[in-house]
């Protein structure tokens, strides 16, 4: 038995028939071709698959597409402005060289944007490190990621970001 799933993905409503067991990450990558969301561990440990569902970060490998029916989902592809200008958090990751291989980056950025949205008064380093516990990076040692998240959050506060749901 398939189920009908209607989700607003990056601002565009989509409706598809999917199997009940279809994971949200499969729906995004395989049904919609949005491969910016990565599958790392597939066991909800690594955070490479983090997307926003109704503005809250979730691991899309541990959510059925059907559970997100009726919700608004934002993926890494939905962060930049229509003219291609990077979201402040993306720009900060580039500026601070917060990636090496880049595999964890989409999930890291999505978690960071949610974290910044939940701390409108700004964040110290400890808050950022604790807030990113659900995202694993095996290259950087996290230092530049933390710097980027603090800088990106500062920019987001200064000029409210487009994707701040």
């Amino acid at each position: 038995m398939t189920v009908s799933v209607s989700i607003t993905v990056n601002g565009k409503p989509v409706t598809r028939q999917v199997e009940g067991r279809t994971l949200l990450v499969q729906f995004l990558r395989e049904t919609l071709g949005l491969t910016g969301t990565h599958v790392g561990c597939d066991t909800s440990q690594c955070g490479a698959c983090v997307v926003h569902v109704d503005g809250r970060s979730v691991k899309s490998c541990t959510l059925l597409a059907a559970q997100a029916d009726g919700c608004a989902v934002t993926t890494i592809e939905g962060l930049a402005a229509a003219d291609g200008a990077l979201h402040p958090m993306q720009a900060a990751f580039r500026e601070h060289h917060a990636l090496q291989c880049g595999f964890c980056t989409p999930g890291m950025v999505m978690s960071a944007v949610d974290l910044a949205n939940r701390h409108p008064g700004g964040m110290d380093e400890t808050t950022v490190r604790e807030g990113l516990e659900g995202n694993i990076c095996r290259c950087t040692g996290y230092h530049n990621i933390v710097k980027a998240v603090i800088a990106g959050a500062d920019t987001m506060r200064g000029a409210p970001a487009k994707a701040a749901e």
């Binding site: 909800s44 983090v50 809250r56 970060s57 691991k59 541990t62 807030g131 516990e133 659900g134």
Partner: peptide
Amino acid sequence: IGDAQVRNR
């Protein structure tokens, strides 16, 4: 509990 994403679900 868990991490931020687990706490959201």
